[in-house]
Amino acid sequence: MDCIVSAYYFEQQGGDGFGPVLERNTTLKGYIEVGLSLRNHHQYCNFQVTRLSQMFKGEGSDITALALRALESLPFVGIVEKFDQSIEQMTKWLSSYFPGFYTMPVAKNVSRNPSNPLNEQIRDRWRVLCQIDGGKLRGYCRVQCLFTKKQ
């Protein structure tokens, strides 16, 4: 759900696409409800799964399986909720190829407003959507597992 809230605040930067226009004409609650009603809109349903599955486009129709395959093949996968740890893990991996490589974690382009709590009804709808379209949930669980294993 946090990714949808983040997208809503990101849309405030403007534009003429569907997302920015929707953001300008509704509340956060309305933005989420409209998005959830658009069953096949990738921003709300399996955004990351859809993106990851493109690594093996044309090699099958099960996007969740393709996304999980992509996760397994990547040398590094980070988790937003563990940003600093992810950057640290990425630095270790990259420094083996680029001696002397270092990073300084900086929070930029952070587009969410933690002071705006979500209505529990919206969270319930999100949970139902994850049950119906569980690729995102399975992918996230796999990322958590891979992240923990690679530390």
Results as ranks from 00 to 15, higher is better:
A70M: 00
E33V: 06
Q43L: 10
G78C: 12
S111C: 11
I4T: 06
L38S: 06
P20Q: 00
C3E: 12
D133G: 03
D16P: 11
Q85E: 12
K57M: 12
A107T: 04
N119F: 01
T91A: 06
Q85V: 12
L52M: 04
F18L: 08
S53T: 09
E120A: 02
S96L: 04
V143P: 09
Y9Q: 06
F56V: 00
G135I: 09
K29T: 02
N119Y: 01
Q48G: 14
Y9F: 10
F47E: 13
V143F: 12
F76I: 13
Y8N: 03
Q151R: 10
S37C: 09
C141D: 12
L74T: 13
K150E: 15
I79K: 03
Q43S: 02
G35M: 14
F83K: 15
S61K: 01
K136G: 11
E72H: 12
T64I: 00
R138F: 06
L66I: 10
S53G: 13
Y31I: 00
E11P: 01
K92L: 12
N113F: 12
G58E: 03
P99M: 07
F18H: 02
F101W: 14
L94A: 02
A70Q: 05
K108W: 06
F98K: 14
I32C: 09
R127E: 08
A70L: 09
P105W: 02
C130R: 14
G134R: 14
S95E: 04
H42V: 10
F76H: 11
G78A: 15
M90L: 13
D2V: 11
L22W: 06
E23D: 06
R24N: 01
M55T: 13
G15E: 00
T103Y: 05
F83S: 04
R127S: 08
D124A: 08
L137Y: 14
N109E: 08
P75W: 06
A107G: 10
F147S: 04
